[in-house]
């Protein structure tokens, strides 16, 4: 039982959150909550690699992009695809696939790319690997922004069925929590975490570490790809520049603010950053205090987030979670 308390607690928390939101029933709240939960899937996905391997990745939003466009290709109405995305293979142009199939396939597409990329770069040292992930992000962005016949280029893809609401998102978050937890308590996960803490002291050979990293990379890309697909089915509209530096920054902030080294951190960080961003966004819209309307200027929200991240890095480098996992309060005894 105690082994599973972390995922159970986290899942419980998310279900309560979903329940509260549906009790309140505000459309705005539901929107924010769903977006946050989808980002949480992504952040948990990034955590699965970064937290376990200790290698920083700046490229995971590239997988999100891959997942999002993959599901668009599978679920858009054929008439639209045949006109707007003329470069798509005929199987995609002529058919539409149901949501679950499309989401799964999107995750697999991202995982496939990760496998290919990972085989190449997982043997690099931490720093070089981080830079390579950065280059990957730039490649995906550049290709998707320019491949007009398949992604619509810089114009947006519209009309993706918007089927993802808060409860579906809660479901996927729970799935992600279970998957990430299962990985980190597995033999591979434990060994990888040992190698993270001290590459020299870990008992495993270099080849083994590379293979374990690769596994984590592929699994994490799968989750992030699924997150991307969910995002597409939540917004219904895609543009390539939604999946670049800004979103990378927000998701990395979530991970770091919560604490890179624990699953609880990924969840808590997503919550905390969303809260910060929403409060600041509210302030940007403005407050009516008596006769006067006070509003923060545009850009304050992002600056606030940047500052929050810098402060966490300086004063609490292991994040809000302190690198620890959620647990029941110990019984006195």
């Amino acid at each position: 039982m105690s082994r599973f308390q972390t995922p159970l607690l986290l899942i419980f928390g998310m279900v309560v959150l979903g329940g509260l939101a549906s009790l309140i029933g505000s459309e705005q709240l539901n929107f924010t909550l769903t977006e946050m939960l989808i980002r949480m899937v992504v952040v948990i996905g990034i955590y699965l690699f970064v937290g376990n391997s200790g290698v920083m990745s700046f490229g995971h939003i590239g997988f999100m992009s891959i997942g999002a466009y993959a599901t668009a290709w599978m679920t858009l109405p054929p008439e639209w695809k045949q006109v707007m995305l003329t470069g798509l293979p005929v199987v995609f142009q002529d058919n539409t696939y149901p949501f679950p199939v499309a989401v799964l396939a999107s995750g697999l597409a991202a995982a496939g790319v990760a496998l290919f990329l990972g085989i190449a770069i997982m043997r690099l040292s931490g720093l070089a690997a981080s830079i390579a992930t950065f280059a990957f992000l730039a490649i995906v962005f550049s290709v998707y922004s320019n491949w007009e016949s398949v992604t619509g280029g810089t114009s947006s893809v519209i009309g993706i069925p918007t089927v993802v609401g808060p409860w579906i998102a809660v479901g996927f978050v729970c799935g992600a929590i279970v998957a990430a937890h299962a990985f980190q308590v597995s033999r591979v996960g434990l060994m990888l975490r040992a190698s993270r803490d001290d590459e020299v002291a870990a008992q495993s050979s270099a080849v083994e570490i590379v293979r374990m990293r690769l596994l984590a990379f592929v699994a994490s890309a799968f989750l992030v790809g699924v997150g991307g697909a969910l995002y597409a089915h939540f917004l219904g509209v895609l543009t390539t520049d939604a999946f670049y530096l800004a979103l990378s920054f927000v998701t990395l902030s979530m991970l770091v603010v919560g604490g890179l080294q624990s699953l609880t951190g990924a969840v808590v960080g997503t919550l905390a950053v969303t809260l910060i961003v929403e409060v600041l966004r509210g302030l940007e819209r403005g407050l009516d205090l008596g006769a006067s309307h006070i509003a923060l200027p545009r850009g304050s929200q992002e600056i606030g987030l940047g500052l929050a991240l810098a402060l966490v890095l300086i004063f609490r480098p292991s994040g809000l979670s302190g690198g620890k996992e959620a647990a029941w309060p110990r019984k006195r005894g």
Binding site: L252, S253, V256, E302, G306, L307, L309, A310, L313
Partner: peptide, 10 residues
């Protein structure tokens, strides 16, 4: 590296 990312964003 993340800190410099934050600086950039700010």
């Amino acid at each position: 590296m993340i800190a410099s990312f934050a600086v950039s964003y700010i």
